[in-house]
């Protein structure tokens, strides 16, 4: 029994609904039809068609033999050790990147939430990495990491941290962390803004009440700020995880999956299968697997974090 019923003893009010005539329904359908048609053509059809393609052994360079292989492409993918190593690399890259983004973005948001001179300027500057296109970002980091003339080597050498120029992207142990660094640099601003919006929405009364109760800064942060930011954290976590799993641009520009297989992640695997080997069957199957994994991950994140909202 609802509170309203208990209070007034009346049945709950029904939402007002204007009667909809058959003519209105038909008109609405006709008016929506063009957009529905466009959606069918540009969204639904490609999705279904690519699934259909994933059931064929389709190679563009072998146009005369395209056998229907049921789910063989999926089986081949799951039996490929390179696929599993790329899954592992993608998972490490995503975990490290998303964790770093969350921490740095939170610190930035906390800083920008305070009143100080130059805050507006700093906020504007913060948006610069976000405004830079991914390709430009990749090229910029390629220059920075270059082993011959890169800014990173130059700075470290001049500051006497290194005695000779180092190999960065060519070192298979450093490649993935360095790409993650470039990814974090690009993604932090958006995450910081989302968290800042969350911070701004926390009622000031809560902090005042906590102060009256004698809560120190850390307690206020742990018991008010962090729990209140949970929806924003969830949004950032889901968005950035999806971005990290599907990220391709930096891998393409910085290393092309190398050296050896050091940066061969899932998105790169899809690219190689589809556009280098021109194996559209396997490429489509891989794309479906990634889409499914991303969906399940987002779903579980929403379930895990959303339950406590």
């Amino acid at each position: 029994m609802s509170a309203l019923q208990g209070t007034a003893g009346l049945p709950p009010p029904r939402a007002f609904r204007a009667p909809v005539s058959r003519y209105d329904q038909t008109s609405a359908l006709w008016l929506l039809a063009p957009m529905l048609l466009v959606l069918l053509v540009v969204a639904v059809f490609p999705v279904l068609y690519s699934f259909w393609t994933s059931l064929y052994d389709l190679k563009l360079t072998r146009p005369h033999r395209v056998p229907f292989v049921w789910f063989d492409n999926y089986l081949v993918i799951f039996q490929d050790p390179l696929f599993w190593s790329s899954v592992w690399r993608t998972a490490s890259f995503s975990a490290v990147s998303v964790a770093a983004i969350m921490v740095i973005a939170l610190l930035m948001a906390l800083l920008l939430n305070e009143e100080f001179r130059g805050r507006r300027f700093l906020s504007a500057m913060l948006l610069v990495p976000w405004a830079i296109p991914y390709v430009a970002n990749g090229l910029m980091w390629k220059w920075i990491y270059d082993s011959g003339y890169g800014a990173l080597n130059g700075a470290l050498f001049q500051l006497d941290f290194i005695d000779k120029y180092m190999v960065w992207l060519g070192d298979s142990h450093k490649t993935l962390p360095l790409i993650a660094n470039a990814f974090v640099w690009k993604e932090v601003p958006l995450a910081a803004i989302l968290l800042l919006v969350g911070l701004k929405s926390i009622p000031a009364d809560l902090y005042s009440a906590a102060r009256v109760d004698g809560a120190n800064v850390w307690r206020r942060f742990a018991h008010i700020t962090l729990p209140s930011l949970r929806p924003a954290f969830m949004l950032v976590a889901i968005y950035e995880t999806m971005m990290a799993i599907r990220h391709f641009d930096l891998f393409f520009i910085l290393t092309e999956g190398g050296p050896a297989e050091a940066s061969h992640v899932l998105a790169w695997h899809v690219y190689v299968e589809t556009f280098r080997k021109l194996s559209f069957g396997t490429g489509s199957a891989l794309a479906y697997i990634i889409a499914l994994v991303t969906f399940l991950l987002a779903f579980s994140l929403i379930r895990a974090l959303g339950r406590r909202l």
Partner: peptide, 23 residues
């Protein structure tokens, strides 16, 4: 060969792996 593109991808990776000491 007709499979040159696919093999080239794997061959480049293999040579690089030896150069960087991964194999």
């Amino acid at each position: 060969s007709p499979w040159f593109g696919e093999w080239d991808e794997a061959n480049g990776t293999a040579w690089q792996a030896a150069i960087v000491g991964k194999s």
